[in-house]
């Protein structure tokens, strides 16, 4: 029996769970306009994983990268939830560089 993938599956579950936390907290303090940076960092992590020889490090980087890409698409909806009071709303957000430009782009949601 090969327990590597089972353990990796459990690690994936934990990272997805962590995704719930960082999407909620990240949107609260930084806002949804960070989505292109989060998405780019996730894609970068997946690309870097191609050059890592350790199977554990490569796999975990891939899973974490994918959870960042997914989370980046959830930030917009989370911002709407906070506006409606379903989560605490914070008006003083730390906006990303080029926020006014990003605001004109359509934020992705799947």
């Amino acid at each position: 029996m090969n327990f590597f993938a089972l353990t990796l599956g459990i690690a994936t579950l934990l990272m997805i769970g962590l995704g719930f936390v960082w999407v909620i907290r990240g949107e609260r303090y930084f806002g949804y306009l960070w989505w292109p940076y989060v998405m780019s960092f996730g894609i970068l992590m997946i690309l870097v994983s191609l050059f890592i020889s350790s199977i554990w490090v490569s796999a975990l980087m891939g899973v974490f990268g994918a959870s960042l890409v997914w989370g980046s698409t959830e930030l917009k909806e989370q911002a709407v939830r906070a506006e409606m009071g379903w989560y605490p709303f914070n008006a003083r957000k730390i906006l990303p560089p080029f926020a006014s430009l990003i605001e004109k782009w359509k934020a992705p949601h799947l």
């Binding site: 994983s49 050059f51 796999a59 899973v63 994918a66």
Partner: peptide, 17 residues
Amino acid sequence: LNSIGLIAAMSTFVGVW
């Protein structure tokens, strides 16, 4: 190239989606 990370990433993304 080590494709394990990419396979894990795609599985995670498709699974969550």
